[in-house]
């Protein structure tokens, strides 16, 4: 097993962890964090698979570079939306009665 494949496998585990987190966690901040964990997992899969043969492939690396910057912007937007939601409703969750998470 090459190091690249090991990275990709770790990425897959992170992705599934984040995906479950997005659904299970009620608080919006935690959902956004879980979403970021998912994204990091996807990046790790792309970068890991790109070098599993030993020669790094520049195309997925460029895609991940693009993706990281977009992920930062998307996270900022999500945080802004969560703030606006909190300012409007006073809640940190989307459904009522789940604030304890």
């Amino acid at each position: 097993m090459s190091t690249g494949l090991l990275y990709a496998l770790a990425g897959v585990v992170l992705f599934a962890l984040g995906a479950a987190g997005v659904i299970v966690l009620a608080h919006l901040l935690r959902k956004i964090l879980a979403f970021n964990v998912m994204g990091s997992g996807a990046f790790l899969v792309l970068v890991g698979l790109a070098q599993r043969t030993g020669v790094p492939d520049p195309v997925p690396q460029a895609m991940v570079l693009t993706g990281i910057v977009v992920a930062v912007a998307a996270t900022a937007l999500a945080l802004g939306l969560a703030r606006a939601w909190h300012a409007r409703t006073g809640r940190g969750t989307l459904t009522e009665g789940e604030d304890r998470d």
Binding site: F15, A16, L17, A19
Partner: peptide
């Protein structure tokens, strides 16, 4: 979630 992780690992 666990099933998804296992399926993706096998696919990789």
């Amino acid at each position: 979630g666990v099933a998804l992780a296992v399926a993706l690992v096998v696919a990789l």
